[in-house]
Simulated assay, not measured.
Amino acid sequence: KNTLSSSYMTVLNHYASSFFTSNEFTKLNKSVNESLSQLQAELLDTMSTKLSKLVNEQFEEDIETYVNFKEFKPTHYLQNSELRIKENNIDTNLFDNGNGMQRAVTISLIKEMASINNLNMAPSVFLIDEPEVFLHPMGQKSLARELVKLSIDQQVFIATHSPYIIDSYTKDEDDINSMTVLHKLTTGETIIKDISDEMTNITNRPTTAEISYFAYNIPTLEFHDQLFSKAQDNTKTHTIQAVDQKFLEYIRNNSNVESLHSFYTETKHDTTKYYTLPTKIRNLAHHDYNSDCLKDIVDGELLRNSIEFLLIFNKNF
């Protein structure tokens, strides 16, 4: 829009600033303002006089009305402009186009703002709702990087459902202050939960599976597998049987864990026996993905329970 604080006006003003400081514009603007002053004087004998007379007839007082032209400034010229789209020789105003085109242009303007060094603008707050709409996943990742640049000097809030936007951030590197989940309940109440510190269980950058679990409350075999591999790294074990024994030891030494969930479950793969639920799920996912047993685990609460166990195990080991 043509408001002074909009992204369009900010970018336009940046690229037009040299023109507005030129001698040519100074002369032009002086001439325009002189002409407006002349017009204002001419209107005193016509429009202003007639309006004053009509007003005084109603109030029976000595009231004078007149037209005043404000001095023209560079911003007035900018606000008289418009963004237009030309496609297949059809020329239209941006706002006569669909939401997809409008959003694409808006996002492009924000990306351009982020690329301009020493942008002359007052500190602003950007509130961006679902910037991923109409964007290809690679475009979403590109946009996320630009928003990080923009946030160096400006405050940026993003509301998103896109894992491609979220997993583009690392809290330590990009100084992202918070990642918050909002749940709107059927009662109308909104629950707000900061998940910033929960999103780096695998690496310093949240994985898509991790986002699905903490942001959208969806347990996945992918996240379970990532946590299982992380447990192997933490325990420095090289075989599935060895890490399974570590799980078993932890369960036996923490009675409250087994009392909450049945993590002890004896299974067999080839000739090797295993004794914990995380290992059972891992083996089924790797070797018998289409089994009814694994389907029941995923559809029920066992997968979530096992993920919660692995989160606790990795945190405390």
Results as ranks from 00 to 15, higher is better:
N305P: 02
M138Y: 14
L36S: 07
H238W: 09
S5W: 07
N234M: 09
H224K: 04
D153A: 05
I152P: 00
H269L: 04
K86A: 06
N99R: 13
E189V: 12
Y275I: 04
R252T: 04
I110N: 09
T200G: 12
Q58R: 12
A285W: 07
L51C: 07
K50S: 10
L221V: 00
H183N: 15
I191H: 15
I107V: 01
S142Q: 10
N316C: 05
L78T: 03
K273R: 12
K53H: 02
L4A: 15
D244F: 05
S196A: 10
I192N: 14
T272E: 06
A209L: 07
N117C: 09
D129Q: 02
N89D: 07
H183T: 15
F157N: 01
F317G: 04
N2E: 06
P219H: 08
L311Q: 07
L28C: 13
S35C: 08
F313P: 07
F157A: 05
E34A: 15
N120K: 02
I312P: 11
R282T: 05
S18D: 10
T279A: 12
F317M: 06
K149L: 03
A41S: 15
I251P: 01
K171E: 04
N97H: 13
S115H: 02
T265G: 11
L221C: 11
Y77K: 12
S259D: 09
K86P: 08
D225V: 04
N117K: 11
V148P: 03
T207N: 10
R145P: 03
L109P: 01
Y275K: 04
F247W: 01
D172T: 13
N97Q: 13
N33I: 02
S17K: 10
I195P: 10
V181I: 04
A122H: 03
T186Q: 14
K27E: 01
Y15H: 08
T239M: 05
K184Q: 12
E87K: 15
L12V: 02
E198W: 09
T21M: 11
N253K: 14
S7H: 08
A215K: 09
A242R: 13
T46R: 13
E61M: 03
S48W: 03
E173T: 10
M101W: 11
H238I: 07
Y164H: 13
E249T: 04
K193S: 12
A41Y: 15
S7Q: 06
K268L: 02
V298T: 05
K268N: 07
D129G: 03
T265E: 10
H14L: 02
L303N: 05
D225S: 15
L260H: 13
K73Y: 09
D292F: 08
S168C: 00
V125M: 03
E266N: 10
M47N: 11
H261M: 08
L78I: 01
D299A: 14
I202N: 13
K1D: 11
T208N: 13
A16H: 06
E130I: 04
Y264V: 10
E71T: 09
N99W: 14
V125W: 01
